[in-house]
Every structure is written in C-alpha cells, then in structure tokens.
Write a protein that binds this DNA or RNA. Sequence first.
DNA 1: AAAGCTAATCTAAACGTTTCGGGATTGTCA
DNA 2: TGACAATCCCGAAACGTTTAGATTAGCTTT
Lengths: 332, 332
Amino acid sequence: MIDVAEAAGVSVASVSAVVNGNAVVSPELKARIERVIGDIGYKRNAIARSLKMGTTHTIGLTVPHITNPFFTDVVSVIQQAFDRAGYAVMLFCTDEDLHNQDEQIRLLLDRMVDGLIVARVGDGASFGKVIAGSGVPVVLIDRLCEGIEADAVVLDNQRAVFDAISYLIGLGHRRIGYISGSLDTSPIHDRRLGYDQALRAAGLPVSEDLVRTGDFREAGGYKAAMQLLSLADRPTAIFSANNPMVIGAMKAIRDLGLSCPKDVSVACFDDFPWADVFQPQLTTVAQPVRAIGERAAELLLDRLGANRNAPPRTITLQGRLIVRNSCAPRMG
Amino acid sequence: MIDVAEAAGVSVASVSAVVNGNAVVSPELKARIERVIGDIGYKRNAIARSLKMGTTHTIGLTVPHITNPFFTDVVSVIQQAFDRAGYAVMLFCTDEDLHNQDEQIRLLLDRMVDGLIVARVGDGASFGKVIAGSGVPVVLIDRLCEGIEADAVVLDNQRAVFDAISYLIGLGHRRIGYISGSLDTSPIHDRRLGYDQALRAAGLPVSEDLVRTGDFREAGGYKAAMQLLSLADRPTAIFSANNPMVIGAMKAIRDLGLSCPKDVSVACFDDFPWADVFQPQLTTVAQPVRAIGERAAELLLDRLGANRNAPPRTITLQGRLIVRNSCAPRMG
DNA sequence: AAAGCTAATCTAAACGTTTCGGGATTGTCA
DNA sequence: TGACAATCCCGAAACGTTTAGATTAGCTTT
C-alpha cells in the first residue's frame, strides 16, 4: 500500500480510501490509484487489516471426526455457507478428545476468529473456561452444553430414537440390542433415553445386558455387536447410536456368519448417501444435515452482524425414520 | 502484553522474552512476569504476531468436494498431520468450479497462509497466475498441473485402472462401460488412458459408445449408467472413475430392475470403509489415502522448514485393486 | 580506582493496515 | 471582497507484536 501510494504520488490514506471505497475520492485520483494497483499487483494484506479492525472474517469449526458421514455433511454445508458470506473456516477434529478440543479452541481464539461452531466433546466445564470472556460468539451443533450460554442447533434425539425403537418393537422384536456412545455427550444421552422410553412404553424390560457402550468408532461398534450377539439369548435386533459404529456392527454380523435382516435386524442413527444402494438397505434415523448446517451458519452470521447480543437461541430439529429393508419382522 | 508489562513494572520486550523464551531473562523477573500473565489471563495475539513475523502457522487446503469419501479421508489425514505440527488448516471446497477455486486461493493468499495444499480443478493457467509470485509453497494432491512448478503427490492412475479393467477382461467381459469425469483433470485423463490401454492389450476395440462423461457427482453417474444400460448391446460390466458416480450407477442399476453382479458387474475407483460390509461388496481400486495425506503434509512441512527452495518433488503412489464380489464372470 | 566486560533490561522502530482530525483548495453568498 | 462552507486529500497515531540496538548495573581486571 505504501508502494502504491508512492508510485501514485498520493498518501496511503487515499489508497486505503479507494481500496475500501468508504471515503470520497475524486474520480481522477481514484482512476490513477486503481491503475497503479493493477500495475504493481497490489493485494491488501488481510492480516494487517485484521489486526487493525479486530475482525478476521474467519470462523473456527471443530467436530469430533470428519470421517463420520454426519459430520462430513454438516462441515460441507457450513463451509459452503460461510464461503458464500465471505468467511474462511478453520477446521479442527477433536478426535473425541477433551484435551485436543481445549487446545484447538485456544488456538482458534488466539487467532482472533470471529466466531466458533463447535460439536463439543465432554462436559461444558473446561470448554466454558476456555471461551469465557473471549467475547467470541459460539454456536453449538449436535451437542448441547449445560454450562454454556450459546446459540445451539440440535436434534430431538430422544424422540427420534423412540420412533426407531418403537418401529422395531412393532415388528415384533422384544430383545433389542443398543450400541451407545459414551453418555456424557447430550445427544447420546438423549438417544439412550429414547431407547428406554420406547421399551417402557411397550411394557418391555430395560436390560443393561442389551446395552453396550462403544467409542463412536467402527472398532467400538464391532466389539459391542460381538458381545451382544454372543449372549446366550441374543437380541433379534440391534440399534446403533451412530454411523461408524453400525459399520462395525455389520462387520460383526458378517464375521459371525449371520445375516441381516434374516438373523438380526439392524437400524441406526444417521443416514448416508449410499444407504439405499447396497443390501441390506439400512433403516436409519436421518438428521436434517443441510438444515443443521444452514441454521448454525445463520445463527452465527446473525450474531456477527446486527444481533451481536441477542439472547441465546436453541433450535431443535426433528429426525426422520427412513424405513428400508434391514429390519424384518421377528420370526416365530 | 502492554498491560502485563505495566502490571509487572517491566518493558514489553521482557514480557515478549519470557513468553517466547528466546532471550535470557533473570529467574526472578521471569517468575514475576509469569505470575502477572496468569493473573491477568494474558494470551498472545497470533494475528499481531503473524503480521510482525510474516508467518501465520496456517495452511490452506482446497478440494473439489469434501463429501467424496476419498477427499474426506485425505482432508482428515492432512488436518491431523498439521494439527500435530501446530498448524491450523483453512478448508475450502471448490465444488469443481474454476472460478471458486481462484477466488478461494486468492483469499488464502491474502491471509498470508504459509502454504497451500490443493486438489485443483481445471487447467493450470489461471491457477498459476494466482499463485505466481506469492512465494507461497504449494503441494498438489491427486491432480497434477502442467504449468505449475510445485511438489505433488499423485497416484499412478493409468496403471491402477489398467489393472482393474484387465481384471474385468479376465472375467470374460468384452463390453465394459466406463464412466469418466471431465478429462481436463490429470487423474481422470490418466484413468481413461488405463482403460484404453487395457482394452487394446486384450485386443478389444475401444468404443466411444461405452464411455460416458459424468460430472464427478452421483447425479452424473446415474445419468451415465442409465445411458450405458439402455444401449441395444449393453455392457456386461461398468467401471466408474470415482466413488460418488458409482453410487449413482448402482442406483441406476437398481432402478432398471437389474442386479449386480448377476446382470452387470461393477467396479470403481476409490475404496471406502463400508465397501466390504454391504452387498454387493464393491470391487474397488484403493488409493493409499493415509499415505497421500501424510506425504503431502511432509512435503509441505519440509518446505516450510529447512528446505524452503528444494527443487519440486513429485511422489507417485500405487493403487491397489481390491477384489470383492461385485464382479462376476460373464455369462455364456 | 578507572576501564572494560558481561549480563540483564529497556527503548523504539517496524510489520501493513484504518481512520481521525486537520489543511489546502475551491466555490458560494452576503 | 471577505467570511464561510464544502470538498478532497494528507499526516500521523493506533492495532499488538518482535527485535536490533542502546542503556544500565555489576564485576573483573590491571
């Protein structure tokens, strides 16, 4: 900019004025400066601008695992939305690790991100401590956080799982295995509630034998399903609380020489593009991923704009049970 | 930092010295400053630091579509690698659009990213113009770029497809449909070469009837497969040049009331975690995604470190044909 | 005891912007 | 013609760091 100013024989203030178009500059001067800018190939330095302006036009996004198709889709939608709005997004994957998450969010805050979209892991305590007083608006997705006052967009997880389990019960299943993630994240907690609620509503017992806690990943799902299917009185249906774990479960079924849905019915949380292409076509609870990403982006952009200090808003969306052919009526 | 300096009764230089630990400070002073830092809760401002130092410890990453499982995996690996190295990554999806890509890379350069990892779209011309003279090291992944002098890690695409098509020919297939992406990206171009080469090696004719150009996406694959399967003398096998398009192809097969592999054998480029879980289990060409991401990260980190101006290096990796049960011997 | 060294600390410029307040020039009106 | 307003442009401070070079204090040396 200084180079431009010298070459054009004007002050940097004038160059800044034409670059940003916010102050009035005579047409001739403007033309001259623009020509010099073109000649020199001047590009405004966004870092210097950020320092002065106190805004980076960048947001931070952290999710547990980007390879989980649910998060892949949400990340994709969010990235698109902010791209359109002229923001860059810095992406981090916490790998379900609380310490990683704190570290990454600290990094993002140090870099003066304008806002944060977080699918947090763990409880709110340490998270709250990290963002406290940073003044950076946060919107939580997927997972609520008791201690935190922030916008959020979440799913009615309990209801969604209630519907799915009720569907299985309607097919005649009485022993329904449930593969959970660790219960300290709100959606997993609520999903479990939906499971219990559906069983109770049908007058069925809730047996802890039938509930296994995986680790959100394929390996955990495999192990959990193996345990469930090795029970003396094995479940006739299995519901997995997320997508990576259902893949593990399907592998377990395959490795045990069983067949879905003949020997065991399977359903899971989170839909995916190929769910209706291969056999069995998995019955899933679909989250409105597009809406989740777009609502989250809207909430944050809104707060970055006019509504800087609106009261915290929570948007709750509904899931949708998509029935395919991975669940069969119980035999006998 | 000024606040800390005042509260501790020292100069900012001393504070900077203890924060960065690069200059020698007496133990007492150091202790005093560290205490004040703790009390005040001072955090170093990374933006100001970047401005002064000329380095942001941030890299830019652009891919065509993050929902393509190949790119999902690569992004995941790259993100992890840079996270470990203390870098943040800014992610953009070009959506296969040349103009988006230019815009996004410009944005990244304005923000003074230290490096760029790009799975570029389109030819090298406009890309070269954008990064020219920026002095920012670039590593290309997946797709080469004739005009550009840069590190790259790519696959031996021709060889990989040659192997896959040869496998189909070995099963007795003579009419093998091929669903391509647009040929102006190097890997797609090379994959097509592999197809032609395999046919010729087997003394089979290359019929343009059997080659359809999709758009890299599911919809394009669907349309292409529909056309192929509507031919009077329809192919007995189909190979798709990427994953999203094979999903479209499988849907087309389903919608036409056909069955894979009974009526038509299917194979495709890019493996995915669920490929061996559902039926048919797709025969795929697996790219070493982890190696691709890690090599790319290594190349860039190396260049960001000591080897700032090493000559451009290109790493070529080999794909691996994973035979499953989506391809059957040709009937009759 | 003065000079010379070393070690610890500080002063101030610089990174590339934005923007406030003020000057210069020109035009308008009484 | 003089006062005043409007218009356009500029100088310089500020954003929060880093760092080269200056300064100071405390020792050693002769």
